[in-house]
Nucleic acid binder design. Structure first.
Lengths: 184, 184
DNA sequence: TCCCTATTTGAGTGCTCACTCTAATTTGAA
DNA sequence: TTCAAATTAGAGTGAGCACTCAAATAGGGA
């Protein structure tokens, strides 16, 4: 993969992989579907990827990374910033958001994936907890953590429903969940 | 299917189908896996079911029905009753709860399934809204509906996370979400 | 007990799966 | 312009898929 053509083909394959996972899940994604959508033959696919698994894991990593577009900002954003960033992810990166949900659901039976998902969740809850602690310094640590954990999981429920119903008004419902942090 | 043996085999196949969907998703479930776990050969499977799809849809229906164990009670239970019933479902009917989440995720690309899921969701939100309206007669209808919608989706987020992490303390987090209805 | 039918057996069918291989083509540095 | 390496083409491999079927077995009403 040193020529422009190879890089472009790689991009098309990854875009296609994302779409297939979003539509058919990790278990229902096939090389043939990936290749057909990418306009590529199996030989090209295996010239660029070692296996189907490798392509899927690459797409998986991209989806998890996309949830938090700016990890450097940790500690500097408000709870509302974090919620708004997630709303934007869900609404504007449709396929990646669906991949994100598919990963969560499928992770249970794949130890490596499961570890990655649980680690990601933990980091995310910490990030939310830090923002909440700034807004509500009166609350004790365990209260902060429980609220953050509830909020993160609940937001994922919003994302799950939106992945079924594109009319679902993500922003409104997500902002309602903010109460969970801000009210006493 | 008129003899006892046939009924027992059918039950074993459905239990196995549930387990396979919970573990591998609708797309990753195979006849071989179903049959192996049920201790049955393909011929027996096809003596009792027309197709893999039929067995899966039967398990799907059971999972959706199990979420609301007592639909006759509509209008007579409090919001807390409803939340507690869902907590019980998630904690005590592990496989069915995972099937329930798998259905939601997979429904997007299957029109029949999608219709069923969206209808189910609508009924469920109505049920929660009715309970909330009783507890908070001061709120107007659209406020009630939005709170119910948020609560139902958020609870599904709790179920989703619990399907990955069996240690997740469903009851505590679910009760926190009750605030969404009860606080002003 | 008989005998029709439900049930089970297990090999077999055609198809699709992930993946491989060789040969043809394209690329771009020298 | 040359040429080694990158890329693509596309047929092929063995395994596993959903599903079938004819024959063997087991069940229970008469």
């Amino acid at each position: 993969m040193r020529y422009k053509a190879g890089l472009e083909t790689r991009d098309r394959i990854l875009e296609s992989t994302r779409a297939q996972i979003a539509e058919h899940g990790l278990e229902g994604t096939t090389i043939k579907n990936i290749c057909d959508r990418a306009g590529v033959l199996p030989g090209s696919f295996y010239n660029l990827f070692d296996s189907k698994e490798q392509a899927i894991l690459t797409a998986v990593r991209a989806a998890i990374d996309a949830v938090d577009p700016d990890p450097e900002h940790a500690g500097r954003d408000t709870l509302e910033d974090l919620v708004n960033a997630y709303i934007r992810f869900i609404e504007e990166q449709d396929d990646l958001a669906r991949v994100y949900i598919r990963i969560a659901v499928a992770s249970r039976v794949n130890p490596e994936l499961r570890g990655r998902v649980l680690r990601h969740h933990e980091v995310r809850v910490k990030r939310f907890a830090a923002a909440l602690a700034k807004a509500r310094p009166d609350l004790d640590e365990s209260e902060i953590n429980e609220r953050a954990e509830t909020l993160v999981s609940a937001l994922n429920g919003i994302a799950l429903h939106r992945s079924i119903d594109p009319e679902f008004e993500v922003a409104g419902y997500a902002h309602r969940l903010l109460q969970l942090g801000t009210t006493s």
